[in-house]
Design a protein around this nucleic acid. Structure first.
Lengths: 345, 345
DNA sequence: GACCCCTATGTGACCGGTCACAATCCTGGC
DNA sequence: GCCAGGATTGTGACCGGTCACATAGGGGTC
C-alpha cells in the first residue's frame, strides 16, 4: 500500500519503529530474525516495514557491524572467455548468498598501479578474489595485505605467491597433459606448444603438463613458442611454425591462440588436420563451430568461479567452511582439428 | 615508517587527530583539501596519516555524506563480447574517476527476479547502468525506481522504455544499414537476416536498418530468421537458410551467430563467399581470423561503456555535465566472407 | 510469598566519517 | 589601542544501523 508521493529520504529503522510503536532495537531484532520477539509485535513491525517500503541500508550495516557482504574481483581483463566465465561464476554464487560483487581491472602490470588498485579494492571492504592467471594478477595477489580476506584463482597450485592465502585452481597441468597425450597417441612424433603469457617467471602449469607428456613418450622437446592472449599472437606464432615442415602437431595455450594458428596454417597452405593437427585449450563457445572445429580441453571456469566464492565465503563467515582446494577435472574434447600425421615422412 | 605489528583496527580520523594533536575535523579538512588549513598543520596531519597508514573508509563516507562514488552495472551476461566490452569500458572510465564498479547479472528474465536484482543494486547505493540490449535488460531498466540515478545502454534510442532516464546507444540501425548496402552493392538480389533476440516486442534497430536498406534498393524482403546470442543459434538458422538455393547473402545480428551460419553453410557444402556471402555484426576479436575471415560492422563497445559512465557521472555530480547522447559511429569492415553472388542464376 | 530465571523490550554508546555552527587567533584600518 | 572580519580550529549532532547492558513482566519452585 505504498501510496507515498514525493521523493523523500528512504525509511530507517527508527521510522519503522515509531510507525509500529516499538523501539528501533525491536525493529532490528525483527529484520535479523531474532527469536525473542512476541509474534504479535513481529507482525506489527513487518506491516510497518511493508508499508514504509523499508530496506535495510547495506552501508549502515557494513559500518556498524563490520561485515559487509561484498566481494571484489580483481582481474586483468573482463573480455577473454576464461576470465569472463570465472567472473560469471563468482557473481552467480555471490548472488545466491546475496553478496555484492565489485570488479577492478588491472590495466597495467606496473607495481604502483597494481598496488593502488588493490588498495582501492580493499577500501570497498569485504573479501577479495584475485584472478592470478597472468603477471598482473599474480602481482596483485602478492600485493594484498595479509590481514585481508582473499582467495586467489591461480594457475599453478604448487607455487602460491603468498602461502597465507587460500586459492582454487583448475588442473591445467593435467589438461595440457591429456591434450598432448591425445596428439601423441594419434601418431605424431612430437607436439609443439604455443604458450600464453606465463603467470610466473617459471614455466606455467600448462607448459609443464605438455612437457611431461612429451618426456613420458620419449618425444623430442622443442621450446614453447611465446604467444599472447589473443588470436593475433597465435597468428604470429603460427606463421613461424608453418614454415617448419617437421611440425605436425601444435598445442595452443588457449582457443584464441589456436584460432590464430589455424588461420596462419591456412594462409601457408597447410591443411588441418591433414598435414598439421591443432589443439586448443578452454573450449570457448565458438570453438565447436570453427572450420575445422577445434579439438580442445574443456575447463569448468564457471565452476571455478563458484568455488572461489564458496571458499571466500567460508573465510568470511564461520558458518560453512568448504573443502579448501576444489579442483575441477578437465575434459578432452576431440573434434576435427586433430588427426593422424601425414602418411609418409 | 609503518612498523606496526599486530592486525589491528585500521586508523580512523580520530586516531590521526590525536597523533597530530589536532581535532578530527581538521583531519577531515585536510583529506578533503579544504583551503583554510594552516600549511604547518596540514604537514603535521599528513605526516600522521602517512605514519598510521590511514585510509578513509568508503563506507563511512557513503553513510555520512550520502554520495557513494559507486556504479552498479546490470547486465544479462558477462561473457558475450559486446557486453563484456561495455563493462570493460565502464570500469575503465569509473576507475579514472575512482568510482567503484559493482555488477549484477540478470540471470532470468522473470519479472520478480529482475525486480529483486534491481533492488539489490539499489541497496548498494550510487548510480546504476543497465545494459538493455535484451528483454531482461529492458525490463530491468523499466523496473528502476524513478528517483534512482540510472543510465541505460540501449539498442534503440527512439523508444527508451522509461523517458525519465538518460541513455547512450551505438547506432545499430545505421550499422545494419551499411552492412546490408554493402552486400546489395556486390550484386545480391536481396539479403537475409538472422536476428539476435529482440530487446523489445517491436523490431530491433538492427532489423530496421536492414529492412530500410532493402526497401531503398527495392529488394525483396524476407522474414528475419530468429536466432539466439550464441553460435548454436546461428548454426540452426544457417541450416534452414542453406537449404534455400535462392539465398546468396546473409546478415547476422552478431559475429557469433555469423560463425554458426558459416559452419552450417560449410556443412551443407555451400561455399563462402563463392555461393553465399555472410556478414556479421560487432567485429569480435576472433572474426578477423576465421576462415573465411568475416565481413562485419565494428562498434565501439568500450567507448559506449565509457560514455555511459560519463553520462551517469554527470547525473551524479553537478560538476561536468556531458553531451547527453553520445553516439559512436559504426565502421564497416570488409573481409573475405562477402563477395559477388554466383555468376549465373 | 520470596527468589530465580527466562522472555520481551528499551536505552545509551559506537562504527567512521560529514555537516552546521561556534570559538579563537591574527591582521589591517582608523 | 580598539574593532571588524577573514583565517583557523574545535564542538556537538547526525547518517542508519549494531552491540552490550539494563529493565519490566510472567511462570515455576520451594
Amino acid at each position: 500500500m505504498n501510496v507515498t508521493g514525493h521523493t523523500r529520504r528512504p525509511a530507517s529503522i527508527r521510522d519503522v519503529a515509531t510507525a509500529a510503536g516499538v523501539s528501533y532495537q525491536t525493529v532490528s531484532r525483527v529484520i535479523n530474525g531474532h527469536p525473542s520477539v512476541k509474534p504479535t509485535t513481529r507482525e506489527r513491525v513487518l506491516a510497518a516495514i511493508d508499508e514504509l517500503g523499508f530496506r535495510r541500508s547495506a552501508t549502515a550495516l557494513a559500518l556498524a557491524s563490520g561485515r559487509s557482504r561484498a566481494v571484489t574481483v580483481l582481474t586483468a581483463n573482463t573480455t577473454h572467455y576464461g576470465y569472463a566465465s570465472i567472473l560469471q561464476g563468482i557473481e552467480e554464487a555471490a548472488r545466491a548468498e546475496s553478496y555484492a560483487v565489485g570488479i577492478g581491472v588491472l590495466e597495467s602490470a606496473d607495481e604502483a598501479a597494481i598496488a593502488a588498485e588493490v588498495r582501492r579494492a580493499a577500501d570497498t571492504g569485504g573479501g577479495l578474489i584475485v584472478i592470478a592467471y597472468d603477471p598482473a594478477g599474480v602481482r596483485a595477489l602478492g600485493a594484498v595485505p595479509a590481514e585481508l580476506p582473499v582467495v586467489g584463482v591461480v594457475e599453478t597450485p604448487a607455487s602460491p605467491p603468498d602461502p597465507g592465502h587460500p586459492w582454487v585452481w583448475a588442473d591445467d597441468r593435467e589438461a595440457a597433459y591429456q591434450a598432448t597425450r591425445h596428439l601423441l597417441s594419434l601418431g605424431h612424433e612430437t607436439v609443439h606448444y604455443v604458450a600464453i603469457p606465463s603467470s610466473t617467471r617459471r614455466t606455467s602449469a600448462r607448459t609443464s603438463g605438455w612437457r611431461q607428456a612429451l618426456r613420458e613418450a620419449g618425444a623430442p622437446e622443442s621450446r614453447p613458442v611465446q604467444g599472447s592472449w589473443g588470436p593475433a599472437g597465435g597468428h604470429a606464432a603460427g606463421r613461424k611454425l608453418a614454415r617448419d615442415p617437421a611440425v605436425t602437431a601444435i598445442l595452443c595455450g588457449n582457443d584464441d591462440l589456436a584460432l590464430g594458428v589455424l588461420r596462419a596454417l591456412h594462409e601457408a597452405g597447410r591443411s588441418v588436420p591433414g598435414e598439421v593437427s591443432v589443439a586448443g585449450f578452454d573450449d570457448a563457445p565458438h570453438s565447436a563451430y570453427l572450420t575445422p572445429s577445434l579439438t580442445t580441453v574443456r575447463l569448468d571456469f564457471t565452476g571455478l568461479g563458484r568455488s572461489a566464492f564458496a571458499l571466500l565465503h567460508g573465510v568470511l563467515e564461520e558458518s560453512a567452511r568448504v573443502d579448501p582446494h576444489p579442483v575441477s577435472v578437465p575434459e578432452l574434447v576431440v573434434r576435427e582439428s586433430s588427426g593422424p600425421p601425414p602418411a609418409t615422412v
